[in-house]
């Protein structure tokens, strides 16, 4: 089976966001980047799928040289090789998906794992866009996955429960926490990763369909009120919730 996993590079979730001088992007100085947390579930599932069915695994990322570090982490977790789609221009989700879809069609992949969402721009759509553009199937927000010959059954998280979804290969699966427990790269994995092939391919960024007009920080909240230090403050709290906030 030919298996891909797509990873995105995101600021550490503890990052304090600052806006850059142009007012349209974040200021990246001093920001450290990590593998998008949901992509760790995608990587793990790709490795497990190969362990079960054999074949090869490739980690694909669209971006620049700075993406190599997270790709090495995927290699250390057991992915066989890497492909960096190196793009110079600005990309929106649609552009990333176009590039991934081209690669996936050309590469003849059977299954492509992604995260359900990047925790930077929180768009939650590269998986679906890629599948739609490549003309293949897609199941999002998966918490369980079974592959049997050509057929795929997954459970996806919805409001108040799960949906059981049936489909077939080739397919894009987007991973939600709960799909598996990602392994930690061990020392051998980290050493091996250094020797694994990480190929680069120059690609041209399609022109973005979504234009960012401005980026801003939300207005800071006015300081709240401390009502007390024990349960004697409870009646006042309940009164405020009823009379001032009017939420109960």
């Amino acid at each position: 089976m030919k298996i891909a996993v797509c990873v995105s590079n995101v600021p550490d979730t503890a990052t304090k966001i600052k806006i850059s001088a142009g007012g349209k992007e974040i200021d990246k100085t001093g920001v450290s980047f990590i593998v998008n947390p949901y992509d760790e579930f995608a990587i793990e599932e790709a490795v497990k799928t190969k362990e079960k069915f054999g074949g090869e695994t490739v980690v694909i990322s669209v971006g620049d040289d700075s993406n190599k570090e997270i790709m090495r982490k995927a290699l250390a977790m057991g992915i066989d090789s890497g492909l960096l789609l190196k793009s110079d221009g600005a990309l929106d989700s649609d552009g990333v998906a176009t590039l991934l879809a081209n690669e996936i069609k050309d590469g003849g992949y059977d299954i492509v794992f992604m995260g359900k969402q990047s925790v930077d721009f929180d768009t939650s759509m590269v998986g679906q866009l890629t599948a739609s553009k490549a003309g293949i199937n897609c199941i999002t927000v998966c918490v369980s996955l079974t592959i049997d010959n050509n057929s795929v059954t997954a459970e996806r998280e919805i409001e108040g429960g799960r949906e059981v979804v049936n489909s077939s290969l080739p397919i894009v699966i987007t991973a939600q926490k709960g799909l598996n427990d990602p392994r930690y790269p061990n020392l051998k994995g980290i050493m091996d990763a250094k020797r694994k092939k990480l190929e680069e391919k120059a690609v041209t960024a399609p022109s973005p369909l979504v234009e960012v007009l401005e980026m801003s920080l939300p207005a800071p909240k006015a300081p709240g009120r401390i009502l007390g230090t024990d349960s004697s403050a409870v009646p006042e709290l309940v009164r405020l919730l009823r009379e001032e906030a009017k939420v109960i």
Binding site: V210, M215, L217
Partner: peptide
């Protein structure tokens, strides 16, 4: 049509328009 969407889990806001 101009939209505002939270990014970085609400730590910032993006004002966008769709050009297609």
């Amino acid at each position: 049509l101009v939209a505002i969407r939270p990014v970085f889990a609400g730590k910032a806001l993006q004002k966008v328009k769709v050009n297609s």
